[in-house]
Write a protein that binds this DNA or RNA. Structure first.
Lengths: 216, 216
DNA sequence: GAGCATATCTACTCCTGCGTAAGGTTACTG
DNA sequence: CAGTAACCTTACGCAGGAGTAGATATGCTC
């Protein structure tokens, strides 16, 4: 009704794969700063420099879109941990590498972390997706601890290993949360602090003991 | 327009203070199972056995109501920790008591915990309230560690103490989260597992060492 | 047992934002 | 350079739910 007079330079056409990634990037940013509900599809479309029906055409409903974000960021997160943790290294070295990988991810993808950690937990349909991811991480950690126990020829109950894994993951999330709000902070520093806490325990720390990475 | 024919037994009048508590109880339950946005004011009013305008008259808007829930549950949580942690006890005894108090609260107020932990984190306006509460808890924990360090005549950087406090609080939240989903689990058991992890550290645990409470 | 403050209800209005129908625009292909 | 398939848009339908207006019931006080 209005145009076709000026025939505006209008828009650029891009292949589907590219646009989908742009949309996901935009969605992660918006979900991160607004929260799931407060984020509107209009704002996401706007942030992606595209109109709303495109989002629906490519990624489906708002729920679908959010789930796609969680899956993409979750996969990246998990990948950044498991890719650096070797199978046959000493327990403390594995722990150290895992923590570094984790905090490096959070430092580099603060938006993604916010979506995963702060948003997905509250919405029931996605809580399941997140729980699944968390369970996989906890399983990785518990498996690591289990192998270390075997290597030390001591024994431990399955439940205790799992509890320790939960504690470790929770501690990491907590510090990551702090990190996400302090852009000036160094991820490796956070990793070292958590390493000290979780490996040595409060008792040793109070006695002034410190853990040192073997490789600089 | 419709009634005044049958003059139904209709409703019971209750003093404001009582109704307010009923409403808060209902709101916590509904927010807990639905999440902030999915919870409707109609459902909350219904759960409280009252009609919607009453909620607005007494507690204000939906935001106000949610904030009231967070404040009430947060105050209770903090109280259940600080009330059992003496000032002049050994560090491990303080830690043990604090953890027991915390997990006892979560075990007894799972709904309240869900509101605090899973919901408040995601909504921007309330994230501040929750952050304030968390900061107070972290400060309590850090203060405890600080006194313990002094008692041990060792030294530690302020930042390291705070990081340890964050890690401890995060680990506790993580296990509490698990506890909230396992009604059959014993809160004291969870407290003991976390005590082992945080006090001894992973290294000691892997060597088969265990921490024992001095009092049964 | 009449008056009055307070507690309570029913029945709306209106806004926000998800999801879609119907139709232009671009660029590739023969 | 016409035909066509994939991109992309504007403009709307519609539902859910926050918040409110106005009327009614209750029980305390004298």
């Amino acid at each position: 009704m209005l145009a076709s007079v000026a025939s505006r330079p209008t828009f650029k056409r891009l292949p589907r794969a590219v646009r989908e990634q742009q949309m996901l990037d935009a969605a992660v940013r918006v979900f991160s700063r607004r929260g799931f509900h407060e984020a509107s599809m209009d704002e996401i479309a706007d942030e992606a420099g595209i109109s709303k029906p495109m989002v629906y055409a490519y990624l489906g409903s708002k729920d679908d879109l959010f789930r796609a974000c969680v899956n993409r960021e979750g996969t990246r997160l998990l990948e950044s941990i498991v890719s650096v943790v070797g199978d046959d290294l000493p327990a403390d070295e594995q722990l150290w590498r895992g923590l570094r990988g984790f905090f490096a991810f959070v430092g580099a993808h603060r938006d993604g972390w916010a979506v995963l950690y702060r948003q997905a937990k509250s919405r029931q349909p996605f809580a399941d997706d997140l729980a699944a991811l968390r369970t996989r991480i906890v399983a990785v950690v518990a498996g690591m601890l289990g192998r270390a126990v075997q290597a030390a020829r001591t024994s431990a109950h399955e439940q205790d290993l799992t509890a320790s894994a939960y504690a470790l993951v929770g501690a990491a999330e907590s510090i990551a949360d702090w990190l996400a709000d302090h852009p000036e902070a160094d991820p490796d520093h956070s990793a070292a602090r958590l390493m000290n806490f979780s490996w040595l325990g409060a008792r040793q720390l109070l006695q002034g003991e410190l853990w040192q990475p073997s490789s600089a």
